[in-house]
Design a protein around this nucleic acid. Structure first.
Lengths: 246, 246
DNA sequence: CTAATTAGCGTAGGCGATACGCAGTGCGGG
DNA sequence: CCCGCACTGCGTATCGCCTACGCTAATTAG
């Protein structure tokens, strides 16, 4: 009873809390090794290349050896999703809540951009791994001097996470799509004008006529700018909320 | 040369623009049939159950027959992602931009909630199908009386889409996870308090101490409220932007 | 030393996507 | 009127994937 047994298996794994045993052969693999190998593989060849066989091969073991350490491939994906995030950089000292959250949001994006497959991982539950929770804590910490209720802080952070999730999913997936098939993007304006009937989609037709979709070359730049734009709008809203709460 | 051939194949399919031929046997299947069957299957048994074999079975055809109409399973997924959205309800007459965008965002969510697997679809490129573009147009239309530049409208709508995407991904995936494994959610507060060290994650520890994660029963309600909260914050930001632009 | 425990792994089953080529169908030109 | 051709449906087969199961060997407790 030193450790109540109620922790879900994957959570225990992420926190390195499995019961140590003495008997039997020394393991030649650890969960950490497996997770790391899987992440390297995903970085190099994409999430689709991550099969139990390929990961084992990379570790010089047989496929089935992995199952001694990991219950299923899904569990491995959960482990990857925590390990890939690493720890957040601490917020800059003396930053106010707004600078803190901006720093945080950009930090999430840079962390995730190191692993483009991240946005494709299934989300299995609320954040529970050490790295995920460290990020969660960091965002909450940015709001510590606002005097808001804990519940409001959580709401604000959840909203921000939602926005950042959306950005991850859209921009990462689009970036992947772009590298695989640039034509779909460079021809976007042309494609739309072939297909959009101004009588049916008048607002979109006006945008097309204004040429907004004509130079999509600077795709990453646009995305980054759009993200900042939306982020600032959201933070403006937060500022209003804080003022009203005081 | 009546139709320039530059339209990507999947876009042409979504708009029903393939060249009609006269020779040969009448097709017993259409792309629409296949897409519909795949959507029904996904609704009933989840996206993982959608295999070419199962879809064909549902249509009383053989697996390989589908490949006459669809180049690959990925293409089928693209078709599903447009068809599942259906057309947006028109914005309420006389609504201002804020009511319009709120209506729009909630409309997206209800449309997507009819197909819980939607958030799991890969995003292959910018929206190009008729339903996706109709939604895009609808959001832009909500901003038509604001006097903003077309580019700003697109930026605002993209930001909103990003936020809604994030909500889709988080709330749909979490809802799926909840139905599969409710314990991970009901025990969430308990799990965290087992694992969170107040010295390392002080802000999170304070939230835990305040009991914010204690009653997660009303999960859907919380999500809906969080979404509205974040949405209003974002729209507040948009309001400020519009005022400044005038 | 002996028995218990556990790691590694070989085998095999089941399912999924899809390349390839054949058979039959029904319209167009002669 | 009929033949050839374009096109549909589909059977076969390959390859890769996840993983259940059970054996073998390593290691340590007693």
């Amino acid at each position: 009873m030193s450790e109540q047994p109620e922790l879900p298996a994957d959570v225990a794994l992420m926190w390195g809390l499995r019961d140590v045993t003495k008997r039997g052969p020394k393991p030649s693999l650890s969960v950490g090794d497996i997770t790391r190998a899987a992440i390297e593989l995903a970085d190099a060849e994409g999430l689709a290349a991550v099969s139990m066989a390929r990961v084992a091969e990379r570790l010089g073991n047989s496929t089935m050896a992995l199952y001694r350490h990991v219950k299923s491939k899904d569990e491995l994906l959960v482990l990857m999703s925590d390990a890939a995030l690493e720890r957040p950089e601490p917020l800059p000292a003396g930053a106010d809540w707004r600078a803190g959250l901006t720093f945080w949001a950009k930090g999430v994006l840079t962390a995730v951009r190191r692993h483009r497959w991240y946005a494709k991982l299934p989300i299995s539950g609320p954040p529970a791994g050490p790295n995920n929770l460290a990020w969660f804590d960091s965002a909450l910490g940015a709001l510590k001097d606002t005097g808001l209720s804990e519940e409001s802080k959580v709401g604000i952070v959840m909203g921000l996470m939602t926005y950042v999730q959306g950005e991850m999913r859209l921009s990462m997936d689009l970036a992947t799509g772009f590298s695989e098939n640039p034509d779909a993007f460079t021809r976007y304006g042309a494609t739309l004008s072939r297909v959009v009937d101004p009588r049916e989609l008048p607002a979109l037709a006006k945008v097309l006529a204004a040429g907004v979709f004509d130079q999509v070359d600077a795709f990453e730049v646009t995305e980054e700018a759009d993200f900042d734009f939306g982020l600032q709008l959201y933070l403006n809203g937060v500022a209003g909320f804080i003022d009203r709460a005081e």
